[in-house]
Amino acid sequence: MALAHKTFLLADDDADDADIFCEALSRTASDAACQTAENGQELFHLLSKPGTTIPDIIFLDINMPIMNGWECLRQLKENTSYSNIPTIMYSTSSAKKDIDMAYRMGATLFLTKPEDIRELAKILGILASTSQESFLSRLKGFENIRLKDS
């Protein structure tokens, strides 16, 4: 059973990728909300704006200007208001070094940006419809999901 009205927040400086992300999410979970920020700094602006809904899941691109994904992740994990929000690194990279770093810094998952929007939609669909406890096991089979120590 889908849980109602999840809010996804993505920080990515690549407008195409942001569009594809929102498009994929709307295809699979039309009731989910998609918020985007162009970098880490803007993400914090958004979060601190009065009336902003606290997101259910945060996606962070790694290479971004002003504040990159790593710095953003670090600050999120240091802030008790946000440290419990599942945070997923969302990058072109599939380098072991980046994957290890992400988990070491407390990321929930590492998702290599899929080439096929349908693949992305499937993953986002699972994330939108399940709780954190169960989506981890349901995402195991996906090639783009890089699990810890894989």
């Binding site: 072109t92 080439e115 096929d116 349908r118």
Partner: peptide, 20 residues
Amino acid sequence: SHDLKEPVRKIRTFGLRLKN
């Protein structure tokens, strides 16, 4: 090579969308 991956991935992404 890391930077090259991004545009190539996008070619694939939009190519697949065109096709599908």
